[in-house]
Amino acid sequence: MNQNIASHPELFSVEGLVGVVFLILIAITLTGGIIACNSNRVVRAVAGLIVCFVGVAGLYFFLNSPFISMMQILIYVGAIAVTIAFAVMLAAPEEKKKFGPTGPLEGPFAFATAALLAGGFSLLALNTDWPVRQKINDGSVEEIGIRLLTEHSMVFELISIVLLIAILGALVIARREE
């Protein structure tokens, strides 16, 4: 499992076909992301977000964690994207004007910032020699459950309270004034 030695699988082998699926997932993720941050209509951006998150869920599958992959689809696609779609319908953003950048320079400046960030992070990732350590368990769902209820139990309870308070707060804020 040395990540520095790139493997060279044949196209028509199991590894090669897995690599093709991986490339398709990358394409889905990036296409969805571009749609989500560039489309003029908010509903289309939500659809792009869903596509992007399905692609990311596939990438999680490649990272040896089908559990997180399922959670990604359940929470992001099933809950967050649907909530955003609800808000789009409730707030009814009329298409009276374009939702593009405001000034002529805003788009290019934003693009330059994003390109600088992406390039910088990519260079940083490529030029760093990440240390690889011995695994102490296999990262299965069983292990995740044990860790959640022993080492990380405090954070687990806190996150439940945060979610509860967030939902109550959302209801209070969005409630119509009598």
Partner: peptide, 16 residues
Amino acid sequence: ALLFAMGIYGIVARRT
């Protein structure tokens, strides 16, 4: 990094 950069671009450039 690309996802992060797209998010930054969206926050800076979008108006809704």
